[in-house]
Write a protein that binds this DNA or RNA. Structure first.
Lengths: 360, 360
DNA sequence: TTGTAGGCGTTATCAA
DNA sequence: TTGATAACGCCTACAA
């Protein structure tokens, strides 16, 4: 017999345990599925009676639209993916917060991944995000090169990317970063003005763009202050505590009188190393560190730092990304936020020296 | 005319800009859509030749399965939602890291939201997570009651919930928390053993389960040590810096010789307040704080703290949640992780006093 | 082993 | 204003 107008397997009453669908609501309200959709998205005008019937049904069935289905057909998930090297690095939470705030306020959710700064993990995460069809991706690029095939795929699906904190021209020109050169320059100059002459550097992996910039700033500041560059006072770390510790052991034995450390975690490592050999800050060496945190104001030594606008970094990146997602085709933007030197006492007579964060 | 066996609107060649679908691959490989699916999920045996053809097509078209569609039909997103009061509170990043690690290793992604500890925001986030059909939710409950309708909805969709750090019996019995009573008790007893007699407390909002527990621990320890309870030395904060600052101003004027602060952020506030009135730790007052961080070991005063196993808190919560998601129906679990007293010098002669974190 | 066809829960396009 | 009905891209009986 012909498959008459019988509701096929469609008919599924309010079977419990199963979340109600649009057709359930439609049946309950005695209207078409279209009508339900219309009132939910309040599109075309729906007569008062029907609208009310639908609303009642929705309430009664405890209906909640399935955003998966909507995403599937609209080709839009209202979700942005973010892969960060390590959310437990105190630098990132505030950045993520900025992202979340901006995303949330524009109706996007955040899918967060850690790459541990490992290229393989980063690639896995990116592939997953692509498969989950996020609308755009915020990336704190791990050290290393993306595989050509992945890059190819990214180009093809044409999904917006915005780099955060680290540039990587192979991928995109959109990036929101801090002016690391300037921050570094200011930090070292401050050290010099505080009378330090043998200034050391504990930097990040030089494959990372901001580590390179910070290194450049260090070199240029030394030169500007007519200070010698001593390779024995320079170490390349990886932005983690342990590397700061080892770098500290290496550098401190050469007796620098000032050290500039390119991030907070490595500073902790350095201070640990200093403690072990009984060297004090600022008595034995002046110190300027990157990234500022609330607790740095209350503990001693009260560290002089170069603060980066973390929240803003995140929110601007998210806003840029969302603009791209929503069709902004304007030319690439490289947003460089200015750091701010926060002078405390870790360089000696810091309080009375004027900072120079405004230059350039 | 009858809708003959013509490919309807289906036929869409490799139109660029559009991501390839399964049927595109099938056409390219000259096999059925089923075969493609079979090789992707390597299900039933597919002949070598066909398998190879499919793989080639996949590579050529740069195909990537659409997990949205898969989720829709399998009713499973491989995504867990987490709503946290504030990722920028240094306590949470490591918890989130634990969650992410566990989730990742079991094939789940993390959708992260901030509630700012605001009940309305929390409800919005939860509703969104439900609509996005996450498979389960990790919740650091904000202060306040969930609306009955939302609770109703949660019951109906029957989605697994695991509470983190804070219990809330209205919602679920599954929770992973720390033994706050014990931690608090140990903290105060340590203060007492260090000779402090006028011990104050800066706690959290008493509507929060762990704030209550920490308060209980404080009271009981005072009693056990035969110390008086002075209301002037107790303040209720909200786990934020500012509240610690105000609490400090209020309490310090009554000259406690020991203070126990229930989280790190409030400790920062307290130390700021102390600094403003020229009171020093540990000279003027001993201090024990909750949550430990790497930097606390290198700055002075070197704080004695009650450390909570943050990463484990997150990973165990995620693992429990995933077990529930994957069908574990066993009875409710309330996992209570033990804190650890980390004795440093903020109470005076701390180093030589034996801790008691193992008791009970 | 492989293919066909129906369905997951929406939105969108046409008619009515 | 409403209602059928075809997508969206995938999985999965059931058939072949």
């Amino acid at each position: 017999m012909p498959p008459a107008k019988t509701p096929r397997t469609k008919s599924k009453a309010n079977r419990p345990g199963k979340t109600a669908s649009m057709s359930d609501v439609a049946r309950e309200a005695n209207v078409s599925i279209f009508t339900v959709s219309a009132v939910i998205n309040n599109k075309t005008h729906v007569s008062q009676v029907r609208r009310q019937r639908v609303m009642d049904a929705i309430a009664k069935l405890n209906y909640r639209p399935n955003l998966l289905a909507r995403s599937l057909i609209k080709q839009k998930t209202q979700t942005i993916g973010m892969v960060v090297s390590d959310i437990a690095n105190p630098f990132f939470p505030m950045v993520v917060r900025g992202v979340e705030d901006a995303a949330q306020s524009r109706g996007y959710n955040l899918l967060l991944c850690n790459s541990d700064d490992l290229i393989e993990r980063e690639e896995r995460q990116l592939e997953l995000l692509l498969s989950k069809r996020v609308d755009g991706i915020l990336l704190v690029k791990a050290t290393g090169e993306l595989s050509p095939s992945l890059r190819q795929m990214i180009k093809e699906v044409n999904i917006p990317f915005v780099l955060v904190m680290r540039t990587y021209p192979q991928l995109t020109r959109d990036a929101v970063i801090s002016d690391d050169y300037q921050g570094s320059y200011d930090a070292v100059r401050h050290l010099a003005r505080a009378g330090r002459r043998r200034i050391g550097l504990i930097g990040g992996n030089l494959k990372i763009s901001n580590a390179k910039e910070r290194w450049r700033g260090f070199r240029d500041a030394l030169e500007a202050e007519n200070l010698p560059f001593d390779p024995a006072l320079v170490a390349e770390g990886d932005y983690r505590i342990e590397s700061g510790f080892r770098a500290g052991q290496a550098i401190l034995s050469h007796r620098p009188d000032g050290i500039y450390v390119a991030n907070h975690l490595m500073t902790i490592g350095l201070l640990t190393a200093a403690g072990e050999v009984g060297l004090m800050c600022p008595e034995d060496f002046g110190l300027v560190s990157f990234d500022d945190y609330p607790w740095l104001g209350v503990f001693r030594p009260r560290l002089t730092t170069v603060e980066l606008p973390k929240h803003q970094l995140g929110s601007e990146a998210a806003e840029l990304l969302i603009r791209r997602i929503e069709g902004d085709q304007s030319s690439a933007v490289l947003r460089k936020l200015q750091p701010e030197l926060r002078i405390r006492e870790s360089c000696g007579f810091g309080l009375h020296v004027s900072g120079s964060s405004k230059s350039r």
